[in-house]
Amino acid sequence: MSEDSHSPLAHDADAFQIAPPAPSSSEALDPAWVPAELVTYRVLLVLLVLAGAALMAWALGFDLIGIAAALGSAALMYWLLMSLVRALVQRQFEATSWRVDDAHLRICKGVWWRRELHVPRSRIQHTDVTQGPLQRSYGVATLVVHTAGTAYSTVSLDGLTHARAQQLRDKLVLENGDDGV
């Protein structure tokens, strides 16, 4: 009962705060990750909205007004959806942080469903750095850490600069030493 005497609003404000106060030693992702991520959504949204516009123009008849109305509403929809996606990706960016210390690699992610992964360094079997063509043009990369686990046999961290990812990979593998498997 004592818990209920708190103002529920205070609780809510606490609970729905998007980025928790991360410890100072945690690192954020590279800001270039946001535009790199948005490109994919942009392409998808353009295709979706164009398909919708075509459907609408077909329904209204392919005259000047019909096409204009379809294109206009398509542009509006694109703008609306894109700002939503942009906000979401920005929140994802803010919600993601990582740090490596002598014991483990820790990754925090998730906007609504938050998750904190602890990977002990002696459990890292090997690490990969992958970079797709899109990622390459934005200079970001994905670090993939492999463990012998079952549910988390691979843990990936998307949105590091390529140099940082490689640095991290070398650090995790070289200082890891022999794992005695």
């Binding site: 818990e3 609780h11 809510d12 606490d14 609970a15 729905f16 609504w112 469903w113 938050r114 998750r115 904190e116 992964l117 602890h118 990977v119 002990p120 459990r123 463990t147 012998a148 686990g149 079952t150 549910a151 988390y152 843990v155």
Partner: peptide, 16 residues
């Protein structure tokens, strides 16, 4: 242990 994970849903976070 290989990986340890802590997960919190929005409902979880409401009550910490």
């Amino acid at each position: 242990l290989q990986v340890v994970s802590v997960a919190a849903s929005p409902f979880d976070r409401r009550w910490n």
